[in-house]
Design a protein around this nucleic acid. Structure first.
Lengths: 338, 338
DNA sequence: CTGAAAGCGCTTACAG
DNA sequence: CTGAAAGCGCTTACAG
């Protein structure tokens, strides 16, 4: 059975192809009665316009693209991206948009995809994650004129609208909580240092520790992998004045940190408190369950998709700050046992 | 700067549009010299053919679709899908194919997407996960005539080619290993019972336990979430003759099981051995690290994509059995402490 | 409010 | 080996 075309609908409804197009797209140009008749026929035939023909004729492709850099082994582990994608699709589906997902090995490949997608007219816009300060992708997208939304802080987004959260505020909340528990030596295992949000967290961490008079508030750089988190934790716990609390930039490094503490015979939370940034089911399942900075990642996705659709439609778009991550205290943080 | 078209290339190279098309697609019909000249111009202009025009004119869209049912909260947690997608894209990218990812709430929605994708000419083929016996998606795809590959066992794939692994063999390996450690009461926390691979694992588990004369080899049904895994574990560990070893159908339930054991004061591996099906970085980070059934999920993705591309090209495609999961013994399994 | 027609950028027989 | 032309299924001014 051949797929029906607007010509088929037109014939059945006794109108022109143009009228069918107007009716299906909810445009003026057909009377209510005609429109209804056309829609009835289209519904009966389960008609869906050929997306290629639609796009070629000048309408939207109704596809947006998302590229994900595939680091050694962290992508599959962090729930972040799946939750983000869930949120994105929730909003995209509502508007009959599809998501093109592309894993890339590095920045150059990512840029090449943006250019290709643009010249192939494959996507109407893209979403950009993990921005760095002076990120070449921002400049490239501005030059291409491809609608784009950054999921990240404004200072790295150039003229592109962005969706972000106030990580500085969340960091402050976490450190103040630890200080209130009596901790004076707080350390941090940070994510990839080049990411703009990492820099913001690092600055906030240093700032608030200074303000509270906490001793050498050190950040050890890591890369979100369990191995890097374990290594950083071992280094921190081997110091003379080892920290009594550590904040990790993702959940998997926090899990690794908890393991290393066990391994070294450091009691959690008796001798060491642990905080994970970005909550996940695994955090709740551990012994002790991990105190975490929780946020609704899906909501960021919804918002980012919403902005992108507006940008594609040509509407004015303003950057949006989402709800910051808030502390969910659990068993991994406590007062020190004297 | 407007995007170049084949007309631009043709003009610059002094040939017809048809010749450009032949040259770009590596078809006969142009002399080597002409072809080279055309490709040089196209390269210089960084030309990429409009995918919509290409698809509309009868060529492939060069997109394949993957739908993922979004269960309560397990999708983001299991690394399985991200690893699968990584593998899929590795092979797809090699052939300039893109991946359309669609989250769906249920089976009906999923079927609707297949139909829509087909009528919109959006995808050249699809990949199907988590098949059930008598899965309506299989029949629907057969009826649509949309090329499709099942990632799952042949008995649920109908006439669609599939990529699968011999889960029965892996189950046998796991149970025999536990029996060799002296375990006589082995239990299992299974995944969603309706999935075809779950049924295979359940049958294999019962079969091998019978053969080895292991007492009441019970399978408790769960849904891959941490909560369900914890609940099932509590039930098992509260029995009079509680099992001394449990096999979990995914890593997140195994993590939850380990936690429940801690909670109930059951020593792992001293009094309880734990095996997780499908390995993940988290398994390696726990205390004790979890013994797991490991397989190269990315390789399944590569293979599935390869088959799908062959099916799209109209080549004959045969179902493929991949390397089965193998046991990676770690600290969570041991002989019982007498 | 409606119809007939041009055009989007390709691919592909079909003549030469 | 090459060129001119039809056609894919839409959208969108443009006349009526």
């Amino acid at each position: 059975m051949k797929r029906p075309t607007i010509a088929d609908i037109a014939r059945e409804a006794g109108v022109s192809k143009g009228a069918v197009s107007y009716a299906l797209n909810g445009r003026p140009g057909v009377s209510p009665a005609t429109r209804e008749r056309i829609l009835a026929v289209a519904g009966r035939l389960n008609f869906h316009a050929d997306s290629n023909a639609r796009a070629l004729a000048g309408a939207q492709a109704r596809v947006v693209g998302l590229t994900l850099q595939r680091p050694p082994s962290t992508l599959g582990v962090e729930p972040f991206f799946m939750e983000l994608i869930s949120g994105l699709e929730l909003e995209l589906s509502r508007h009959s948009y599809a998501l093109l997902l592309q894993m890339v090995a590095g920045r150059d490949e990512e840029l090449a995809f943006y250019e290709r997608w643009h010249s192939e007219a494959r996507v109407d816009g893209v979403l950009v994650c993990d921005v760095r300060t002076g990120d070449p992708r921002v400049a490239a997208l501005e030059a291409l004129g491809l609608p784009a939304i950054v999921i990240g802080p404004p200072d790295a987004s150039g003229s592109l609208p962005c969706v972000w959260s106030d990580d500085a505020q969340s960091m402050e909340e976490a450190v103040q909580y630890l200080a209130a528990l009596g901790h004076r030596r707080v350390a941090r295992v940070g994510g990839i240092a080049e990411f703009a949000h990492t820099a913001i967290r690092t600055a906030a961490f240093t700032g608030v520790c200074d303000r509270l008079g906490l001793a050498d508030a050190v950040t050890v750089a890591a890369d979100y992998s369990g191995e890097s988190g374990a290594r950083a934790t071992r280094r921190l716990l081997s110091r003379d004045d080892r920290p009594t609390a550590i904040i990790y930039d993702n959940d998997i490094m926090a899990v690794a940190g908890l393991s290393v503490a066990h391994e070294l015979g450091v009691a959690v939370p008796g001798q060491l408190s642990i905080v994970a940034w970005d909550d996940s089911p695994v955090c709740r399942l551990l012994h002790p369950p991990l105190t975490a900075l929780t946020r609704d990642i899906g909501a960021y996705g919804v918002r980012a998709a919403h902005l992108l659709l507006a940008a594609i439609a040509g509407d004015p778009v303003a950057s949006t700050r989402g709800e910051p991550a808030h502390l969910s205290p659990r068993g991994s943080t406590a007062r020190l046992i004297p």
